[in-house]
Each structure stands twice: as structure tokens, then as C-alpha cells.
Simulated assay, not measured.
Amino acid sequence: MRLNPVFLLSATDVSHFPSEAKTYGAPEVAFLGRSNVGKSSLINSLLGSKQAHTSSTPGRTRAINFFALHEGAGAKMKVKPTLIFADLPGYGYAKISKSISAEWPQFIEPYIADRETLALCVCLVDTNIPPQANDHQLITYLKQTQRPFLVVGTKADRLSNNVLAKNMAALKREHEIDEILPVSAKTDSGTKALWQRLMAVAE
């Protein structure tokens, strides 16, 4: 089933989050990860459009961007979205000014901790680099708050099968998780499997 994305809004404060009246209480999927992990590229690959803004400068996304995914198109688009995507700012990029980094927890932590319609957190980790401490902090936080989450390994197309398997094993071991779904926004590898998991949330 093809879903058509509609940009809802950008939120830089809890008061900006879309109301249930605006989203019709549709389940939300949050995409989280380090700056430059390929988050916006993956979202665009899933949506088949350039909805999420990609940048070669890490840390460009400084708001939570919400997209409503609808069945149908144009006038035939269903009123209630099937899913809401929430594209969260990347973390772990040191060159961003301290003032901006300090503002992030004020609206990101309440979103993850308190958002009732948040059904799944998709945690993106880069399969090309060693396990990162701030990824581990996020995954541990989601376990502690009992938020459903799925860890997705990005940029999987850049590695041979042997190296990918070795890196994935290291990521699972370090982050103490049983599953990582490898994907590539460039080749679309793994995106079908990811869609199946997202649609399970919608149902």
C-alpha cells in the first residue's frame, strides 16, 4: 500500500506538537539518531519523496518535523492518517552551539517520555562506524522508559556482507540488543522489511 506524505508542522516546543484533532490520534513513529546517520535520507527513501530536508552539514534539523501519511491521493485522500512520522533532531554533533544543544532536551525528552500517540521509536545507528556511546544512552533510555523501539543500521550498502555481519554483531553486543535491521537509503535494501514493521504499528 502506497502512503502519501503531507507535511504537518515543525515543533521547537512542547506547545507546538500537533494536537490529536490535527492527527486524528494516528500512531506516531519517531526517527532518532546521531547527526549525519542518514535519517532524512532514509525517511525520503521510505516516502518516495524529498519531504525530509537532507543536508551535508550535520545537525541541520533543529526541530521535530511531523509528516502525516495518508492512504489515497488528492481529493480521495483519507481524512485520518495511517501513520505520523516524526523526524527528530540529530544528536552528538559537537560543533553545534551549546545554546542550541541545551534547548533540545526541553522538547525532545518530553516528546519521547510523554507523547501518548508515540507508538515506535526507530533508532538509527551507522553500520560503518564503531558503536557510539550516545546511541547506547538513547537505547538504554528507551528500555528504561519501556518505549517500543527498533534499531535500524544505516548505510549498509557501503560494506561487504562479511564486514557488515561483523559490524552488526559488534553493535548488538555493545548496545545489548537482539536485533538490528540493516537498510540502505541509496539502494532501498531493507526498506521493505522496515515498512512491514511500521505497518504493523499502524494496524
Rank of each mutant, 00 (worst) to 15 (best):
G90F: 06
W195E: 12
V6G: 00
V6F: 04
L159Q: 13
I129P: 03
L47A: 07
G33Q: 05
V125I: 13
I112E: 01
K98Y: 00
S101W: 03
K95H: 11
H136T: 12
F149G: 07
N44Y: 02
Q106H: 11
T117G: 03
S56C: 02
A26W: 13
V183M: 02
N161T: 15
K78F: 03
P18V: 14
G33E: 06
L83Y: 07
E116Q: 14
M199S: 13
L9A: 09
F85H: 08
P110A: 03
E103P: 01
D135K: 06
I43Y: 03
L83N: 06
E176A: 14
H175L: 15
R34E: 06
V201S: 01
S97L: 09
K22D: 07
S160N: 15
P81E: 08
K78L: 13
P18N: 08
P81Q: 06
G92E: 06
P89R: 00
C123Q: 09
V122P: 09
A52R: 10
E103Y: 03
E176P: 03
I180S: 05
R147K: 15
A73T: 11
E20N: 06
V29D: 01
P5S: 13
S184G: 09
S10W: 03
L124V: 14
A202Q: 07
Y141T: 12
F7A: 12
G59K: 03
A30E: 07
Q51V: 12
A119T: 08
T140Y: 14
G48D: 09
T154G: 09
N162L: 05
H53D: 02
K39T: 09
F149H: 12
K155D: 07
I84A: 02
P130I: 06
N36P: 14
A156W: 01
G92K: 04
A52I: 13
L181H: 08
P131L: 11
P130R: 12
S101L: 12
V151M: 08
S99H: 02
P81M: 01
V79S: 10
S40F: 11
L47R: 04
N162G: 10
Q137R: 08
N167H: 08
A170W: 13
L159T: 10
Y24D: 09
K192W: 04
A200E: 15
T12G: 12
T191S: 05
K78C: 08
R197A: 05
F66R: 01
